[in-house]
Design a protein around this nucleic acid. Sequence first.
RNA 1: UCGACAGUAGCUCAAUGGUGGAGCAUUCGGCUGUUAACCGAAGGGUUGCAGGUUCAAGUCCUGCCUGUCGAG
Length: 381
Amino acid sequence: MNDKNFFSVLSNSSESKARTGILETENSNILTPVFMPVGTTGTVKAVEQRELDEFDTRIILGNTYHLFLRPGIEILGNAGGLHKFMNWNKSILTDSGGFQFFSLSKLKKIYEDGVEFSSHLNGDKYFFTPEKVIDIQRIIGSDIMMPLDECLPHPSEFSRVKESIGLTLKWEKRCFEHYKSTKELYGHSQKLFSINQGGAFPELRKKSIEDLAEIDFDGHAIGGLAVGEENSLMYDVVDHATDHLPGKKPRYLMGVGTPIDLIECVERGIDMFDCVMPTRNARHGRLFTTYGEINIKSAKLKNNFSSPDEECITYTSANFTLAYLRHLFIANEILGIQLASIHNVGFYLNLMKNIRQAINNDTLKKFKKEFLVKYTSGIKN
RNA sequence: UCGACAGUAGCUCAAUGGUGGAGCAUUCGGCUGUUAACCGAAGGGUUGCAGGUUCAAGUCCUGCCUGUCGAG
């Protein structure tokens, strides 16, 4: 079941731990380092499937918790899985819902056996066990499944984190066993990653990684970061984590991050990222561009008829002006959100493409330097 | 022309005679495995004008101005 060709490293940077590779699922070949747009409920918010295709998106995220609540596993099963349901024939990675028990923490109660939670939609009570989380993801049919984990806030007490990584390990072992004893439902194989925790405590992070690495997961994720800690601390934890993660398996940093975070963490050996930032910020009127971030609603842009980004060509930047985008946001027009989302996702994917190219040419350090000069110049602001 | 009602922030409206507020709009921030087209902050007022009563008036009284409606 553990396909040896699932992940291959293609090139290594001589300047850092950065590397390129390829993830081969039955639905797509994914070049790494990769950024995976977040599509929690079966849609990358405000971006159509054909737009994702247009900038060559090979994998997106879904969320077990949210899809379980809506539309529910019965409908997803009847539809023949999420791919068919949403008409997406590339890859999907589903998060387990562990993060929702952190972000919706008031609605949950953690037990040894799993998590009891109340739906944020109507208060209905449910109980997720590690096995159930796998069962749901079997029905969703994601190419890569994530195990149930416990994500703690930062900062957390050493003893609390220590206890937590023990619980997470037990849950993930159960997920793995259930994964091995069940089968895919729709003819394409599904992979299962681990998620290590350990907060910002190096020894706990190391222990979590080593314990999980003993199990034959298809890849390893770093969880519990970007939850309020300083950026430099996050980079340190990532650096430390990748020193201990198996080199032959893909490394996935969950929930990260800003464009700068992506470069910093690629240098530290990360292969996969996901983050709501490009889509959420787009809906909130913030554009990511080569020359920094733009608040599209700013009064300064009223009469600015230039492209939001002449150097990163997307459908949006190639066809529309800042003044028009601003107008759409001020007028509360849906198209503004769509165009901003298209641009931001396009910007992220383009950035990753450039990063991969730089690693292949072994010029990542130079690329980073040049990127940062422009990105932090604030020319547009 | 007469009558009724109404004039408070850019807009729509609050405010027992007792420190004039809110929503929207404006401007500026913030969003990191999506409860998020969201959240936060700031700016913005001779309460239509002129008098009067009162310790104290957006509020009560008088006149004027403007608007809406009605009558003629």
